[in-house]
Amino acid sequence: MELAKCLELNRHEIVSIVGSGGKTSLLNYLAQYYRQEYTVMTTTTKIFLPRTIDYDRAILTNNKSFILDKGITLLGAPLPRVNKLAQPVLPVLKKAFKQADKVFIEADGAKMRPLKGWRTTEPVIIPETTTTVGVIPLSVCGQSICEQTVHRLPEFLALGDFKYHQLITPVVLARVISQSGGLFQHSQGRKILFLNQAECAALQSDYEVLAALSTRFLRQLALVISGSIKTQQGMIIWRNEQLQKQS
């Protein structure tokens, strides 16, 4: 199935993307998929400035006198001397929320590492978020816990009493995903777990992660998706039928 369809987004959504190992790629992919709608790309942290071909117009000031048009609008505050954008001021964001069909927000940072630990102030998820997508790369399984694989190593180690140079397994990933200070800390709206880089992972590692998640935690999620941003394909490997009935 096409990856974007797996997310089952509604007509109007404010999507905060958190985690590691594919956040920016997912942000760009989803914006492109919904390019025919009123679509916004932005951040609540810092992101590298996208290529000009990846958006149709940019609003890079705090001037609130704008009207969105169809296509992708890039929203952000340029940072001096670096090729990055920071969060626009809240009044600009809130105006965009009212006009857009889809808003995709990179709400976390991992310094290009496949995994990370979170400070108490992270991720930066705004209350208006309707869906939080947590991204974890399956391809990191088999590597070891160290500075090269983990951003904020002390915080990561504290998540599960992990040890330096411990082997990363599906069980380790499940612990990072489900801990109260882990992947979905501060999340809002529907919670979707996206196990990325399935094409690079060992056979069945996605289902091993799923099996290691407690029933109590799974009740908090709407969907678990296994797939690949690279191939733009995915499949729903777990669905919260109880949430479906309630909605």
Rank of each mutant, 00 (worst) to 15 (best):
V172L: 14
R11T: 09
V103Y: 00
Y29F: 15
A96W: 02
A96C: 06
S178H: 03
T169C: 12
Q246S: 01
L75R: 01
V140N: 04
V89T: 07
S25E: 14
F194Q: 03
Q36F: 10
Q179Y: 06
E122Q: 15
L193P: 10
V172C: 07
V92F: 11
Q99K: 04
L138Y: 04
P114D: 03
Y164I: 12
R119I: 00
A96Q: 07
G181S: 09
N240I: 04
S214I: 02
L9F: 15
R11K: 14
Q143I: 05
T73W: 07
A58N: 05
L115W: 03
V82A: 05
T132E: 00
D161W: 09
R35K: 01
Y33G: 06
E208H: 02
R119T: 08
Q36T: 13
I192S: 01
A174M: 08
V103L: 03
L193F: 10
L210Y: 14
L68I: 03
T169H: 11
I59E: 01
K70T: 14
V89D: 14
L243T: 00
K111A: 07
R190D: 14
I47R: 05
V40R: 02
M235F: 03
L49P: 02
R57Y: 06
L27M: 12
F217T: 10
V140I: 15
L213H: 07
L223W: 14
I237K: 00
T132F: 04
T24M: 10
G76W: 11
S187I: 13
V171T: 11
S144R: 06
E13M: 15
I14F: 05
D69G: 10
T43I: 10
I177N: 02
E241L: 02
L157T: 05
L243F: 03
A202S: 07
H186S: 12
R175W: 00
K64R: 08
G182Q: 07
H151Y: 14
R113G: 11
Y55I: 05
P170D: 09
F184C: 12
F48R: 09
N196Y: 04
P127C: 08
T215M: 14
P170F: 13
S144E: 01
T121P: 11
M235R: 03
L173S: 05
I72Y: 03
S139G: 08
S228A: 05
L68F: 06
K245W: 00
R113L: 15
K116N: 04
L30S: 09
I237R: 04
G189D: 10
Q188N: 14
G21R: 13
L27S: 08
L85H: 11
Q220A: 09
A107H: 08
I229F: 06
I14T: 12
P50R: 11
T45I: 15
L68R: 09
R11P: 07
Q166N: 03
L85I: 15
S65V: 03
I59G: 01
T132Y: 01
I59C: 03
W238S: 05
L68N: 07
L218K: 15
R219Y: 09
K230P: 00
D56M: 09
L193H: 10
K94V: 09
Y29S: 11
Y34L: 15
A77L: 14
K163E: 12
P114K: 07
E199D: 10
P78V: 11
L3Q: 02
G234F: 00
G160N: 04
A96Y: 05
N196P: 08
I105L: 11
A31L: 02
D69C: 12
R152I: 14
R81I: 00
E241F: 00
